[in-house]
């Protein structure tokens, strides 16, 4: 098994990769005013056969700002819980080492 230090080093490398890929993609793709892949797919459907969706979304965010608020909220919720637990197990390990 790998020891903790080499895991740490590996994690730094992974982090660099995680930051690098979207940056490169932005640099190559050009702009950030992207529509999503599913919008492109639905446009394709609309165009090819004049399909009209038969069901509307029950509720849509009343604007772009609210939508990004809700997205931030979703990310914050997830990251909060995840990091709470990571902190918890770190603390647990630290106290176990003290004994």
């Amino acid at each position: 098994m790998k020891n903790a230090n080499s895991l740490k080093r590996q994690n730094y490398l992974l982090l660099i990769g995680i930051l690098l890929i979207p940056t490169l993609a932005l640099w190559m793709g050009g702009n950030s005013e992207f529509g999503g892949a599913d919008t492109m797919a639905s446009e394709l459907i609309d165009k090819s056969e004049g399909y009209t969706p038969w069901f509307e979304s029950v509720w849509a965010p009343p604007g772009g700002e609210t939508e990004s608020l809700l997205f931030a909220l979703q990310a914050a919720l997830g990251a909060g819980i995840l990091c709470y637990f990571i902190g918890y197990i770190r603390g647990k390990k630290a106290t176990a080492n003290d004994k």
Partner: peptide, 18 residues
């Protein structure tokens, strides 16, 4: 929680869509 975080990460991609 992990699934929540990841599905809120709209990453840009080479195609100009996310």
């Amino acid at each position: 929680a992990f699934a929540f975080v990841l599905s809120s990460l709209k990453l840009p991609s080479v195609t100009g869509s996310s």
